[in-house]
Write a protein that binds this DNA or RNA. Structure first.
Lengths: 254, 254
DNA sequence: CGATGCTTTGACGAACTTCAACGCGGGTGG
DNA sequence: CCACCCGCGTTGAAGTTCGTCAAAGCATCG
C-alpha cells in the first residue's frame, strides 16, 4: 500500500538503479562497511533496488508489517509518528547512506511512518535474509549491531537536546548535524539545501514554526548563517558550535 | 575504575549471585527469551555475576572502554550523560531484566555513565563472547536485535515525550511507564517505590525539580495519585492515561 | 540533637507558544 | 500574460508554561 509499483517492475536497470554495493559511493557509510568483496557480493544479491519515490510519497506507514529495512541512496526521508490529535512528531531525517526501519524489528511492525522529502531512491534489504546472512558473515553481524548501537546513541543525544537545550541551541545543533552529514557524503559542509520545511524542522526540534523562523532571522542578523528559503550557507561555524554546546555569550571577564 | 572490586572476588556463590538464567525469574524479560535449554546453558556459561553495587556506586563512566553489556537482576540503575557545564542529563532508568550498555557498541566506549540508584545486582555479559555465541545461535541473534530495536523504539517514544508534551503529560507518562514495568516484573502496578530522586525525574523529563514537585502535589490534590516521598500509589490510572495521551480536560459538551 | 540533603512552596520573570496578519513564490487557469 | 490562489515563511503582539530564585519544611544519619 505504500507505493503502487507493479511487482517485477520495481527493479530497473535503465535508470541505473542497479548499482552494486561495491560500486556505490555510499558503501563506506552504509551497511557494507568492513565487509570483504566476496561477502559483499552475497549481501548485494539480497538487496532490492526500488523505483525512486517522489516527493511526498510514503515508504511505509504506522502499523505496516515489517519485512525489510531500507537504506537511502539519494534524496532524503523523514520518519514520523502520527500523534492522536492528527498532529505528527518527526523522529528523524534520513540522508543517503543511512538506514531506516530498525525500530520495527522488535514487534514486526513499523512504529513510525516514512515519507520522501524529495525524489528519493532506496535499497530495500529483506530482513529475514539479512538475518540469515549475518549469521554466516560475522563482520556483517558486527556492522549491523554497530549501526543499531549508533542509532541508540544518536537518539539519546537528541534526548539531551530536547530535554535540556534552548531553542537556539537546538537549531544550531541541527544545522551542524546536517552540515557534518552532508560533508561526509561529499557535499559542501557550508552550503546546502534543506529538503525539509520549517514546519518539519520545528516539529523535529520540539519548537513552533514561528520560533524556528525567528531563529533563522536572528542567526542571519548575527551573520552566523545566510538562509534564503531552503538554501543555507553557514558563515560562522565556530559560532554555531558555541551556541550548540551551550556556551554562554562571553561577557568580558568581569 | 568504576568499581573497586578485587578480580576473582566478583563472582560469589554464598549470597546467591550465581542463579542460572534458567532459574532466574526475569528470564522472560531478559536476553534469554525464546532460547532453548541447551543454548541457554551456553549463554549461561559466558555470563558473570557481579558483586552487587551499593547505592551511588558507578558501574561505568563516560569514555570507559566497552567490553560487556549488563543486565539488571535486582535494584535499579540510572544512565546519564554528564554535560559540559557540570550538569548531567539522565537518559534512562533501568529496572530488573533490562539491558545496559547497548549504546557503547558502535565505537567501543560508553557514551554515558551508569550509577546504582539503590543496592543493585547485575549480570555482566562479555560482548565478544556474546557476539560469537549469537553467531551460532540464531534465536539469540534475533533476540539481541529485537532488544536493540526496542531500545531505539523506546528512545523515540521518549523523543516524542520531550519534544511535544507538557510537563503534566511527561510525568504522567513516566509514572505509567514505571507502573507497567513493575507490573511485568511481578510487583504491583499501582503501588511502588521510586528509587530515583525528584531531581533525577526532573532531569530525565527535561523539567525543573520544582516543577516535578508541584506536579506531584497537583496530581495528589486531584486524587490521581498518593505520594509520600518515594512511595507512590496510583489511585486513578485511567486519569493518568488520559493526561499522558494529551487528552484535554473534558469540557461538558458545549 | 543538630547538620545535611532532599522536597516542597511561593513569587517573579523569561522563553517560547499561540493567535493573527501579511508577504512571497510558484503553479493554474482564464 | 496576467490574475488569482494556495502553501509556506515571516513578523508582531499577547498569553502561558515553566524555570529561577529564595526560603522554609522535613526525613535521615552521624
Amino acid at each position: 500500500m505504500t507505493t503502487n509499483e507493479k511487482p517485477g517492475n520495481d527493479v530497473v536497470t535503465t535508470q541505473g538503479f542497479r548499482v552494486a554495493c561495491k560500486d556505490c559511493n555510499l558503501f563506506q557509510l552504509c551497511l557494507p562497511v568492513g565487509i570483504d568483496t566476496a561477502d559483499l557480493d552475497r549481501l548485494d544479491r539480497i538487496i532490492r533496488r526500488r523505483r525512486p519515490l517522489k516527493r511526498g510519497e510514503q515508504l511505509f506507514g504506522v502499523g505496516d508489517g515489517f519485512s525489510a529495512i531500507y537504506a537511502v541512496r539519494s534524496g532524503s526521508i523523514k520518519t514520523f509518528i502520527p500523534a492522536e490529535d492528527g498532529q505528527e512528531q518527526v523522529t528523524g531525517f534520513h540522508l543517503p547512506g543511512e538506514l531506516l526501519g530498525l525500530d520495527a524489528i522488535h514487534n514486526q511492525q513499523h512504529p513510525c511512518a516514512a515519507r520522501a522529502l524529495e525524489t528519493t531512491s532506496l535499497c530495500e534489504i529483506p530482513f529475514d535474509l539479512l538475518g540469515d546472512l549475518s549469521q554466516q558473515i560475522p563482520s556483517l553481524q558486527a556492522q549491523l549491531l554497530k549501526i543499531m548501537s549508533k542509532e541508540i546513541f544518536d537518539d539519546q543525544s537528541l534526548l539531551l537536546l530536547l530535554g535540556k537545550k534552548s531553542a537556539e541551541e537546538r537549531l544550531a545543533a541541527l544545522l551542524l548535524s546536517l552540515s557534518g552529514r552532508y560533508c561526509r557524503r561529499g557535499f559542501s559542509a557550508y552550503e546546502f539545501n534543506l529538503s525539509m520545511s520549517r514546519n518539519d524542522i520545528g516539529n523535529y526540534l520540539g519548537l513552533a514554526v514561528e520560533t524556528v523562523s525567528r531563529l533563522f532571522t536572528k542567526f542571519q542578523e548575527r551573520s552566523i548563517i545566510n538562509a534564503q528559503r531552503k538554501h543555507v550557507q553557514i558563515l560562522d561555524a565556530p559560532a554555531l558550535t558555541r551556541i550548540a554546546t551551550g556556551a554562554k555569550v562571553e561577557r568580558p571577564a568581569e
